[in-house]
Design a protein around this nucleic acid. Structure first.
Length: 276
DNA sequence: AAGTGGACCTGCTAGC
DNA sequence: TGCTAGCAGGTCCACT
């Protein structure tokens, strides 16, 4: 589910509800991708700062409590979402991390358990630093743009779509938004990254930013189960031009949208609008 | 060294 | 109707 827009929508919800709250209890469900790395009760008494986001990770900074300065790095994996409940209801079989606070209960629900909640003494310290180490620039960071995209793709033979998704050139564009950005930029997803001209890099960078911004505005995409922290669905999935539309007519030219597999992930594109 | 493929885990759906 | 193979928004790791 969650690409950058969904994670950002989640972060905003957490920020609104939980900033300044004090941790009363932590409840763990089944194991997630990585262990929390600290005894749950060690977080009791800590006060939450404003949640931050880096790529598809959310950083819940906290101070005080037995564990002292640090925070919890959250990832929603493929199927995760977070809700903030007024009261702690009984945990379901897919609720694997509850942060009970004075301002509500933040609950991570993640059926596939590719997500994680990991304690770290700081964002710039292990284990958080190790997890964030390979992330490229944020899409709205001034560092990211056509020049960066162009420079970083020289000599690369791999197709642009998996390169975009890998997160080394820019974080945040997962399968949906990589497909959508390439469509908007008129670029064939199979084109070798190193063959993108500078003007096309400019265009692609702009479209990555535009599609992510628009998706955040729309509350993210809810393909099957994504919900924001108050339980509402996003509606960007209603605006996709190509993602999930195999066989349906392109909204621009009417040609059938095609589906193929790249790096073991489905790619959707319009063979007419997107050129090599 | 870049690129590829497998792994992690569960639920839903399309197809027989 | 019922089973099953295949597929799903991510990312790490091992191997070529």
């Amino acid at each position: 589910m969650p690409e950058l827009p969904e994670v950002e929508v989640t972060r905003r919800g957490l920020a609104q509800r939980l900033t300044g709250a004090e941790v009363l209890a932590v409840r763990l469900g089944k194991p997630l991708r990585w262990p929390l790395g600290v005894a749950p009760q060690a977080l009791v008494g800590a006060r939450l700062g404003e949640p931050a986001r880096r790529g598809k990770y959310i950083w819940l900074a906290m101070a005080g409590g037995a564990q002292g300065q640090g925070g919890v790095l959250l990832h929603l994996g493929m199927s995760g979402s977070m809700q903030v409940l007024d009261q702690a209801t009984e945990a379901g079989p897919h609720d694997h991390f509850d942060l009970v606070t004075t301002q509500g209960v933040a609950r991570l629900t993640d059926p596939r358990r590719f997500g994680a909640a990991v304690w770290s003494p700081g964002l710039d310290q292990v284990p958080a630093a190790a997890l964030l180490a390979r992330l490229g620039p944020e899409p709205f960071d001034p560092v990211f743009g056509g020049a960066h995209l162009h420079a970083q793709t020289r000599g690369r033979r791999q197709a642009i779509k998996p390169v975009l998704m890998a997160g080394e050139l820019v974080v945040g564009a997962g399968n949906i938004y990589a497909c959508e950005a390439l469509f908007r930029a008129g670029i064939d997803p199979r084109l070798a990254a190193g063959r993108l001209s500078r003007p096309r890099c400019d265009r692609l960078a702009a479209e990555v930013q535009a599609v992510l911004a628009q998706a955040i505005e729309a509350g993210g995409s809810s393909l099957r189960d994504f919900k924001d922290t108050s339980g509402s669905q996003g509606h960007f999935q209603l605006m996709t031009q190509v993602y999930g539309r195999a066989g349906q007519p392109c909204r621009v030219c009417g040609t059938g949208v095609r589906k193929l597999v790249q790096a073991q992930r489905a790619t959707f594109f319009c063979p007419q609008c997107q050129k090599r």
